[in-house]
Amino acid sequence: MTIKEIVDKYGSKRENLLQILHGIQNQNPRNYINKESISALSKEMNIPVSQIKGTASFYSMFSFIPRGKYVIRVCESPPCHLLGAESIFKAIEYKLGIMIGETTKDGLFTLEGTSCLGICGVAPAMMINEDVHGNLNEEKIFQILDQIQEQEKERIQLCREEALTRF
């Protein structure tokens, strides 16, 4: 969708800005809001770029730098912290070789922290894109990440095969 189409979808009133920003970020293959889209949005909604950037930067869900296809958000709130969020970060760091705020070289994963996800009953918890995962431990994390990596491998393989058949 073009920026205009996204704005039309949600309505050009100021109060729809956050939804529009989500729309823009979600359709970006690298999961972020780039400079050009802020400029275009500013023209479309007649809001200065400074205010759009100011609004978006207030919320941790928006990013201005390219991120991975899968954004891992590990809950950092007290219940998760008490039940070992720290070791969850460590396990991901070990498995993917990225620290908080970093993206894997293959562009697949970005690791972030987040405030409470509202599922303290299954702490420690994390989100990968829209999917929520609870009762985490090292083993479970490896399993989840392995699964995604496997899926992606298969997907890449399929793409390759499809490309080869075209020759």
Partner: peptide
């Protein structure tokens, strides 16, 4: 031109984007 950016202790008043 000028608008607050980021949140909490990290907030700065920044120009444009």
């Amino acid at each position: 031109t000028l608008s607050p950016r980021a949140r909490g202790f990290d907030t700065i008043i920044a120009p444009g984007q």
